[in-house]
């Protein structure tokens, strides 16, 4: 309940300037007019966003349910499915979970880094082919990926012949593949944000004798923290839920990611195991939400507020 610095800073940037002191004394009617509707919308959105997933939660607590046709929510509450997740040696859920976290975190940190480097170049440096370069980055990623799986499989097999650690069924290999998408939309998102940082800051630092690398690493990166957090989160989510490439490249049971491992629970020909699958999916969503909770303060916290001014 304590108010941290980021929140107080955010107040300055809020759309409706109101000193925090007013907060407890707001009259009922005013509260309704200014805040009540926000809560209504918040609740409506939460219902819209969460109700299909409440279904999943309900299924995960029911040892025998399926995903369709069971409209009586929470008719049984048992942790059996969750226990099953961690006790079956043929389904090393804990290992899948750890793999997903490692792949997700490494990919997102590297994506942020590569993307920020590129965005800095596009935003601060002037060179021929800058516009075309930006445009092609985004166009390349619009290519329909129907054949991507075949191509990437062949590519990694070739790489694996030279460097087995980077080949098929390797987590480093799959991270590299994901990094192929590091530039693109993310670069644009960062580029837009970089452009809003006044160049006068760079120039002042240059006068102080700082080189371009120092300006980038020590000044600019801190100022663009919100967008770094956003891109990191987007990349983490995209990586952890990616299925097609992971299912082609990873094959050993103990190396799978959550998306692939979970899918195997329900793709056993006609022998599907929805309840355990639902339990696995519920747990899989937790890291994403935890990461978001932690990054929120960077995204909206207005850490940059003081610096930009």
């Amino acid at each position: 309940m304590s108010i941290d610095i980021s929140e107080t800073l955010a107040v300055e940037r809020g759309s409706e300037p109101a000193p925090p002191v007013v907060r407890p004394r707001m009259s009922g009617r005013k509260w309704l007019r200014e805040m009540g509707w926000r809560h209504l919308i918040g609740i409506a959105v939460v219902i819209f966003a969460a109700f299909p997933l409440v279904y999943v939660l309900s299924a995960s607590l029911n040892p025998t349910g399926t995903l369709t046709g069971s409209n009586a929510l929470f008719r049984s509450l048992s942790l059996e499915n969750y226990v099953a997740l961690f006790t079956d040696p043929n389904r090393p859920y804990a290992a899948w979970f750890a793999n997903t976290m490692v792949i997700g975190l490494v990919t997102s940190v590297a994506t942020v880094f590569l993307g920020a480097l590129a965005a800095y170049a596009f935003s601060r440096l002037r060179f021929t082919g800058r516009r075309v370069g930006l445009l092609s980055l985004i166009l390349v990623q619009m290519f329909p990926q129907l054949l991507a799986v075949v191509a990437i499989y062949l590519l990694l097999r070739g790489i694996g012949d030279v460097f087995p650690v980077l080949g098929l069924d390797s987590q480093i290999g799959i991270i590299l593949v994901y990094l192929g998408g590091a530039l693109g939309v993310n670069t644009y998102l960062m580029y837009g944000f970089f452009n809003t940082i006044p160049t006068s800051i760079d120039e002042a630092a240059k006068i102080d004798g700082a080189g371009h690398a120092r300006i980038f690493f020590t000044i600019i990166l801190r100022l663009v923290a919100p967008i770094l957090a956003v891109v990191g989160l987007l990349s983490f989510i995209a990586t952890t839920s990616e299925f097609v490439i992971a299912s082609t490249l990873l094959s050993s049971n103990e190396k799978l990611t959550l998306a692939v491992g979970l899918f195997r629970l329900v793709s056993n020909e006609t022998n599907t195991n929805y309840p355990v699958f639902a339990a696995g999916a519920v747990l899989a969503a937790i890291p994403v939400m935890a990461l978001f909770l932690w990054l929120q303060k960077y995204i909206v916290g207005g850490l940059t507020a003081g610096a930009v001014k």
Binding site: A49, L53, S241
Partner: peptide
């Protein structure tokens, strides 16, 4: 906010099944 990003946090093939 955290609850609003729920649809994004779930594996999307699962969401489609649901």
């Amino acid at each position: 906010r955290v609850l609003a990003i729920l649809p994004y946090a779930f594996p999307s093939f699962l969401s489609a099944l649901v």
